[in-house]
Amino acid sequence: KEIATFLEAENSKQKVQLSIHQFTNTCFKQCVTSVSNAELSSQEEQCLNNCVNRFLDTNIRIVKSLQSIQ
């Protein structure tokens, strides 16, 4: 049973990691247009923050709508 709990915790952590990889990929493409220097501008950082939050808003709204249809 301890092994099952451990595996489940690892599985959740892995899902979070994969979501972070996916969001970084999507949001970097949209928010970071220039790589002429190595620092993020404050606009880019704000855009990345908004991007994650708006993507999650969209995801949650869609899940709720689909659940209410069923």
């Binding site: 969001f23 970084t24 970097f28 970071v32 620092e39 993020l40 950082e45 990345l48 923050n49 939050n53």
Partner: peptide, 10 residues
């Protein structure tokens, strides 16, 4: 750096 920002936000 973007990975860190996204990670914190998520």
């Amino acid at each position: 750096r973007s990975w860190n920002v996204v990670s914190r936000a998520y």
